[in-house]
């Protein structure tokens, strides 16, 4: 709906004053939306820089020292290599968590017995810090790729299950009755009513899942793995090379933001119809 404000006059005949007034209105809308966010980031950046310079503290360098360190690890090629390793474990671990989480969640949502059987496992794992499993996984799978994938998986899987169950559970009974009255088969009920109606909650699970998966990716690498961004953080941390640690941290933040935005964009496309009232 943006862009078209009036069509009564041809653009050429509109006075430039009215034009600039309209541009001003647009700018105000943009400012209202993004102003607070941009200023928050600006405050963070300036605060970091000022604090770093004032404190003169070895372990808290000003922000301006970070790009240099970032460029250093970028040029040696290690940043990209480790980033790729990390992203691969994120993609595989999260991908498996989505597929398995949806399947288990749907089964639990539809069949009471399955739910009663699996509920304890889900509850226990949802509230236990997944990091506690790392020694066990380490013993079982060593320091290989499998351990990293499983850690990412375990961070995201349970929350996806819980949200999928909630979504399937909360399906509108009137819609089910409506579909039944028009002769829907069990399969059609599931595909045409249950899944779409549960989608907003399912997507919420996938959104929380991706942020957890990123945490799992880094935690796994920090604690055991020899590869990935997290492993590099550990190594540079051990050498007290704070600038490089912070350069990696910034990279991880970018990865996390990018991954969550991808899921968010998919979510908005699929569940635009469930949008709540604007504030």
């Amino acid at each position: 709906m943006s862009g078209q404000v009036t069509t009564t006059k041809s653009p050429a005949k509109q006075s430039s004053a009215a034009m600039s007034q309209r541009l001003g209105a647009r700018a105000r809308v943009v400012l209202d939306r993004w102003g607070p966010e941009v200023s928050a980031i600006a405050v963070g950046i300036i605060g970091w820089e000022v604090l770093g310079r004032v404190l003169q503290f070895r372990f808290f360098p000003p922000l301006s020292a970070v790009p240099e360190a970032w460029w250093e690890i970028y040029q040696t090629g290690e940043l990209i290599t480790e980033l790729m390793m990390s992203l691969r474990s994120l993609a595989i671990g999260y991908g498996l968590a989505v597929v398995a989480g949806l399947a288990v969640g749907v089964l639990m949502g539809r069949y009471r017995k399955v739910e009663y059987f699996l509920d304890p496992f889900i509850d226990i794992n949802l509230s236990t810090p997944s990091l506690t499993y790392i020694p066990v996984l380490f013993a079982l799978f060593g320091v290989g790729d499998a351990t990293r994938y499983i850690i990412v998986f375990s961070y995201a899987f349970f929350i996806i299950v819980v949200n999928t169950v909630a979504g399937i559970r909360s399906v509108d009974h009137e819609l089910l009755e409506m579909a039944r009255s028009f002769g829907a088969s069990e399969g059609a009920l599931f595909r045409k009513i249950m899944l779409p109606d549960a989608l907003p909650l399912i997507m919420a699970g996938l959104r929380i899942g991706i942020t957890r998966a990123v945490k799992g990716m880094i935690n796994g690498e920090l604690f055991i793995a020899l590869v990935g961004l997290g492993a590099r953080v550990r190594i540079y941390g051990g050498q007290f090379d704070v600038e490089k640690v912070l350069a990696l941290l910034v990279t991880i933040i970018v990865v996390a933001l990018a991954a969550t935005s991808v899921v968010q964009i998919i979510d908005r496309r699929l569940t635009f119809w469930a949008e709540t009232v604007q504030r």
Binding site: E174, L175, E177, M178, W273
Partner: peptide, 17 residues
């Protein structure tokens, strides 16, 4: 249910998506 009958619901029962 059968194709000879169709229901109209109090709360409309429309699919919001």
């Amino acid at each position: 249910p059968g194709p000879d009958r169709a229901l109209v619901f109090q709360n409309f029962a429309l699919m919001p998506w």
